[in-house]
Amino acid sequence: MATEADAARSASTPGWHDIILRSFKRNEIGLVPYVPDRVLTPLIQGLHDDPFFTTFATAREEEAVGILTGAWMGGRRGALLMQTSGFATLPNVLASLVVPCQIPLIMVVSERGTLGEFNYGQSLVCRTMRPVLDALAMEHHTMTRLDELEFTVDRSIKQAVATQAPVALILSPLLTGGKVFA
């Protein structure tokens, strides 16, 4: 389903956010709650500008996981956007709801806390992320290259749905540029 927003975007070289948005669309990922991160701004803006998506902020990431779980059970697909600190609030809901109920939760995490982080707290929070994902045996990919992005996002969404298992797509500063010390 091509919209005017699609046409406007394709005029310039697609950025990481265009590619994610396109992959979401192709895979019918239409419901996109988020707790924002500076790096995610162009993706969030793109989603808001495209009527295909229902995108909105939630008060907590956990709440968004609940919403996406209910939506999946009701037959509607979605994805959660957040930063590393947001992921750090999720182990309880992942272990008590998403994994035991076999929910194909798609998580897009903007990686803060590495490759030039200026906030020590962020860097420590970041170190908790992969151990949690591994402890729950959850699929996760760290995306560093634009040329691999579409393949990784597209295949990961398809695998999550086919296997009824969650996936975390981690957006490295190598891909997004990250957030730099001002």
Binding site: L31, E62, G66, T69, G70, A71, W72, M73, G74
Partner: peptide, 14 residues
């Protein structure tokens, strides 16, 4: 705490 968010998700889907 997640009964309301889950219900919201179902309500949005259907």
């Amino acid at each position: 705490g997640l009964a309301c968010p889950i219900a919201l998700g179902v309500a949005l889907a259907q």
